[in-house]
Design a binder for these strands. Structure first.
Length: 266
DNA sequence: TTCCATGTTCCGCA
DNA sequence: TTGCGGAACATGGA
């Protein structure tokens, strides 16, 4: 689930539920998800504190704990948040729980344990240290800057979009959607994109990510012309009458229309 | 049983 | 040096 639009919705969810509530207990149900923080320190920082602000960069969500630093949540492939009161509402693969004085809890659920929870003192330092690229929605990203990001890059356009060091937040699903709407085959070579196509690609990136948030990342709400509700091998293309095909690229599945996505090679 | 899955990282190789 | 392909991580569904 969690690419940029999903994480943005997690942030809004956290804002309207867990923010400004006093934490009365911290339950670490699986310390395997902790990244560069020991359970004791996480408890000491969070216990008795309050989440006072949130930030997102790419697929990372940060929540400031008083003045003590930022809780960092990354969701891997299967992570999500759940705010609940009754124990029977606790999700099945809860790895971390913040319990609040009002009787509610915020669970971090991560079935496949590919996500991680950490504690950072400064968000911008973290972004810098990790070498994360700009966030296409949070950061100012003019067309010229984007075109520069693409210069001197080799490889395919899909792996570039998914490269978190170039742009932060796009994963397998949304790179497919963006390229489908731009009319570019994911195997196209970055160097083969002219200025006009680079401009169109950037506009599509922003539009697709914003729309996905607006539609609450629910494929049923997406316009029928989107790829997402039709991401199956062999079904008809909702745009042109071609066929949607599944191909393998860089070790993952990519879904493309065999008719309207042009493959640019040098 | 085998394949697949929205993430990241590491390794060998070109 | 950059990036590709594959494997690994952990878990579960079809």
């Amino acid at each position: 689930m969690p690419e940029l639009p999903d994480v943005e919705l997690f942030k809004r969810y956290l804002n309207r539920t867990a923010l400004h509530k006093t934490i009365s207990a911290v339950h670490i149900d699986d310390r395997g998800i902790l990244s560069r923080v020991r359970p004791r320190r996480l408890r000491r920082v969070c216990d008795g504190g309050e989440l006072r602000a949130s930030r997102r960069h790419g697929k990372h969500l940060f929540a400031r704990v008083d003045g003590a630093g930022w809780l960092r949540l990354h969701f891997g492939m299967t992570g999500f948040l759940k705010y609940y009161r009754d124990d029977d509402r606790q999700p099945a693969h809860t790895r971390l729980r913040l319990e609040f004085e009002n009787g509610f809890s915020l669970a971090y659920d991560c079935q496949r344990k590919l996500g991680e929870v950490g504690l950072v003192s400064d968000v911008d330092d973290f972004i810098e240290r990790e070498g994360l690229g700009l966030d296409p929605l949070e950061d100012d990203l003019p067309a010229g800057t984007f075109a520069d990001l693409l210069s001197d890059r080799r490889g395919t356009i899909k792996s570039l979009l998914m490269n978190q060091g170039v742009l932060a937040g796009i994963g397998n699903i949304y790179s497919d959607e963006i390229l489908f709407q731009t009319g570019l085959d994911p195997r196209s070579e970055v160097r083969a994109l002219d200025g006009r196509r680079r401009g169109r690609l950037l506009r599509t990136i922003k539009r697709v990510l914003r729309k996905a948030i607006d539609y609450h990342v629910d494929p049923d709400r997406f316009p029928p012309t989107y790829l997402l509700p039709h991401r199956d091998d062999g079904v008809g293309c909702p745009r042109c009458g071609g066929k949607i095909r599944r191909i393998r690229l860089s070790g993952r599945s990519a879904y493309i229309c065999d008719r309207h996505q042009e493959r640019l090679m040098e």
